[in-house]
Structures are given as structure tokens and as C-alpha cells.
Design a protein around this nucleic acid. Sequence first.
DNA 1: ATCGAGCAGCTTTTT
DNA 2: GCTGCTCGAT
Length: 668
Amino acid sequence: MQHYSQDNNSLNPEQKRAIETIEGPLLIIAGAGSGKTRVITHRMAAMLRRSIPQSAILALTFTNKAAREMQVRVAQLVGNSTRMLTVSTFHAFGVQVLKRYIRELGYRENFSIYDQSDQAQLLKETVRELGMEDLRDLRSILTLFSRIKTGQTKWDAETAEFRRLYDEYQQHLKLYNAVDFDDLIVLPTRLMSEVARVREELEQRYRYVLVDEFQDTSRAQYRMLRLLTQNNRNVCVVGDDDQSIYSWRGAEYENILQFERDFPELLEIKLERNYRSTGTILDAANRVIANNTNRKAKALWTGQGESLPIELCYPEDEQQEAEMIARRIKSLAATEGLRYDDIGVLIRTNSLARTLEEAFLAENIPYRISGGQSFFQRQEIKDLIAYLRLCANLNDEIALLRIINVPRRGIGKRTLEQITARAEHSGQTLYSTISELVHAADSPLSTRAVDDLRAFFDLIERYRAQLLAGGKKPAQALEAMIAEIDYWSYLVMEYQHNDKIAKWKYRNLDLFVQMVRDYQNDPDNLDVGLYDYLNRITLNARDDQDDSEEDGRLNLMTIHAAKGVEHEVVFLAGVEDGVIPHQRAIADNPANLEEERRLFYVALTRAKRRLIISSCRKRKLMREVVETAPSPFLEEIPAELLTVVEAEDVVPAESAADFFRMMKERVR
DNA sequence: ATCGAGCAGCTTTTT
DNA sequence: GCTGCTCGAT
């Protein structure tokens, strides 16, 4: 398709070397578009050909999507099933380890995984319990907790006031038999360093470890990796410091330097030949990223000669920008025979998506959006999952609190307060307190409250038995439960003004049941149960769509989500000062400017052939329209690589009226 | 116990 | 311009 993409059978000498070096530590610095994925998958295939058993190989990726793709590609290369090969994210791997060994830490195997909204819920509850009125910024507190837990931050005078809250938060997690995302990394690490048997078993099994997107590993992840590999020393990491864009989540590309120190005998290979982009695009990207200090020297080059200039245009506002992009996409599809899925529209923040989506809808362009709210984050789905989670782990208080009165069953604030007080007093979990109250002869609650509670208790007990009993089909049980709790009536009640929403939500429940059914019918999942499914859902929060069914669609995504992706044509929208670099990102720390530049670099290098950048003169941000200036990064692209296009030239007219006037003139 | 009005805070990125 | 939360009224 692309005349300059790499031939399927040929590998350049560096790639070959990377693939054939199987033993010992290996550091691959892989520039954008240098065939990184290709090298990793071929390397794994080479390992298998040398009779290294699948089960001895562990490949760690950054997203679930990347993991799936890698697994498929290796399977294609070896022409065989790769079921015993472990390809997963750090977090999913952590779950596996915890499932096997978490007892050593005093948890049980049916632990729940708390995502950020569960965490926020738990934090709120903890704040309330400690009687701290000052709710302040929950999110920044959670960020602090995360940094404490992963060892990025230590308690100091400034943060001391939250220490008690943190301890309490931790205690609650344990009591609920729940772990948060950071625990998925931190607890396995602790297990490996504190329990000799765990580490021995793991390193005996995983004798060969690969890590993709190494520049985005956190310190905690690196610690885990080092423990796992420092005896075997067969560890291959692949990364590019110029593409490190997750420092806000704890990524430290300095891990590359640490790796060199910890594995001094390593072999370092640089992949600098770019097979993806035209010379123009690559040149622009190189020039931009050269403005960053503190990077590993690297010179990407391509065999490609001259090519299309990068287009730059300045629409009046986001409306005009969106229309321009939509029409341009249509004309590209018509004149150049491009498929919509050859095109990517990249944005810095999710909030920019809406206007673009409207324009695509208006122009009938099928699109898919990655990022944004996931299916599993929707209220109705979270409700259902909470039921399942409670059945799986009766201690999961966050799940219990979510659904104890959803749909309404008469267990209101007062009743709940009484139960909570009692539970706190006796140091027991809410659920066992409920069990006690339901069975007790004398109860401080009214008869009616007890009856309502008993109905709830019985419901959970019954479905718990059904859902967990081997052989029984969870999907059927789930379906029966939805009917029994009459979630439909609940939706009708809640959305009486808008039965469309109610219907839509109910349909989502159906979809969810279908997903559970598909999962339980998949022969690959025969040996796994409800817990595994729930865990998988939590970890798969974002990329949950069936990509296979989405062929032929335009890709609209954040730059973060675009990592590892490439497109023939890339539109880069909203390239304004304050959007990229994002104002918030540089406000608290000017050093973040370099990360914003890397982000811009990643965006540029997604394009193979054509790059179209737009920067609006005005933009509606929050509630008001503000004048915007072009991103300073644009000045870092040499002018001769750019051609400025008038938005009006691309878009026939600003309004329908103008459009018709023009048409008339033409006819005349 | 439930509902609705009014208000606050928010939109940086995600496993 | 939206969501989620609190509080007061029923």
C-alpha cells in the first residue's frame, strides 16, 4: 500500500541483531516508526523457534490493546496458537501474581479491584468517617496517595495532615479485601521481595521478559521488573525517551538510565531508520524534538525523498475547524481513494472531540472514538458490575453501598446510618452486620427496615450461590437477576422525562449480558470464572470496543491514545497555545513543557504521508469564547516544510447561504 | 424516603 | 454547559 513501508521479509542489520539477541539484557532504543512492534514480535517468534517454551516468556505492554495485537501477530508469525504465551500489561500481570499469592499478604483470592471512581468513593467515605469536614480536592489527595504508595513521594510537613487519612484508606481497602491500581504493581513487588518462594517460582517460570514502551514505565513497575529479572538477566526493553508522555502517571523515562546501571553488561541497539513517514514529516518532527534538552541523542532518517508539504490552516473557530476537517476528509476519500480508517484526527484533550463528532455526523462520516467514557463506566453497567462484585466479594463495601438501594428498595439514609454505625462499632463489615441484623431476634431497626434488608440479603445470597457455583452459567443468572430486581422499572422511574435514555440504558444491560455470555462461551476461558471476568473488565476500562467490527471508520482520538498507531493522513486539531502545550500541564511545573513537546512530536510522527494541522483563532473554552494564539511548537517547524492553507479554500463556504450564492454565481 | 432546585466545580492525558 | 452533590420541601 505504502511504497516506502518496509518490505515484509527484509530486516535492516540493527533489527536483525535485535531479533537474534535472545540471551542477556538488551536495550532497544526505537525511534518513532522504526519498526519496533515488528522487531518485538519477530524476536518472540525467533525465541519460540529456538524451542523456548511459550510459558517461559513474558511480554509486558502498556495497553491491553497492544497486548492483544502482539499476541495475534506472534501467533501469525509462528502459525500456531500462542495460548501459553503471557502477553499482558503490567497491571494485568500483577493481577495474575496476586491471584496466586495474595494470601501471603492476608488478603483472599476473590479481591476486588478499585478503579479511580471506586477509590474516590472510598476516600469520601473515609473522610466522612474520620469526621474531616474539609473535603478539598479529592483528586489531588488521590494523586498524593498514589505517589506515596508507589514511592515517588515521601511524607513531609506539607502532606503530614493526610497521613492519617491515608492509613485509614489503606485499612479500609484491606478490610474490603480490595486493591487499587497501584496495589497491582506494589503488592506483587512486595511479595517478590518478602517471600522468597514467590520470587523463585516466578523467575523460574518467566525466564525471558520483554517490555514494550519502556519509557512509560513507572518507578514501581521498574522495581517489579528488576526483581523478576535480575537473576535470569534475560530482559529486553524497548523504548524511546522522546515518546515518554505519561509522567503525570508516574512514568520515568530515566528508567532507561537506571536500566543501564542495573544491567551494565547489556547490549544497546538503536533503531533510527524510520519506515513510516515522509521526509518532510520526519524532518519537522526531528526539528521540533531537538528543542528538548536531556534526551538520548538520536537521529531518525528515512530513505524517502521529497514529499507533500505539511498543511497549516487557521480557522476562525472550532466550528469552522471541524467543518473544514470533515469536508477535507470527504474529498480525500473521494479523490485519493483513501479509506476512512486510513485517516486519524488527533486532539490533545477529550473535550475537543464533541465539535468534531458533530461535524462527522453531519457529513455522514463513520468514525470511532477512542478514549472518552468507556462502556463499563456507564452508571447502569457499573450498577450491574457492583452486584456481581458484591456477590464475588461480600466485603466489597463500595459495591454494596452502590447498589443497596438501587433500584430503590426502601433502604434509605437512616437505615444505612444505623447499619454503618453498628458495623463500625463492632469492627465488622457492612455485609456481615446486615446478615446479623437480618437474623437477630431483637433488632434496633423497625420491622419494615428489617424486612427490606432481608429481601436484599436473600437476593444477594441466592445469586451469589448461582453465580459462583461451577457449571452454572453466569450470564443466565445475571439475566434472571436483572429481571428480578426489575431494573427496567427503575430506569423508567428515573428517566420519566426521557424514555429514550431509559431504553438506551436498558439496551446497554442487554449488551453487557451478551458480553458475559460471549466470555463464558469462549473456549479459551473455560477454566476461568466470574472473578477473572470482573478483573478483566476493570483493567480493560478504556479499550473495550470490538475493533474488528469497526473497520472502515475514521479514527478520532487523543494523542495519548494514538501512541503506537499510524495513519496515512493525520489531522492535528486545536494546535493552539494553551491546548498544546496544555495550560494546566505547564502551570504547576514549567518543566512539563518538554513533555508537551514530546506529545506534539508523537502526534506529528503518527502521519505517514500527509499531515494537516489546524489552529483556531478563537475557541470556546469552558463557557466563554477566547482569542487563541497558535501553539509555540508550530514555530519550531521550519517554514519551508509548511504551506499555509486558507480555511475558506478548503471549506467551500462558511454558511449554507454563502454556499448557495456561490453555486448561483457558478451557474451564471 | 424521595424529589427537585440550586449550586459548585470542572475538562489533561489513563492502567 | 454539564454533572453530581447537597439541602430543603413534601
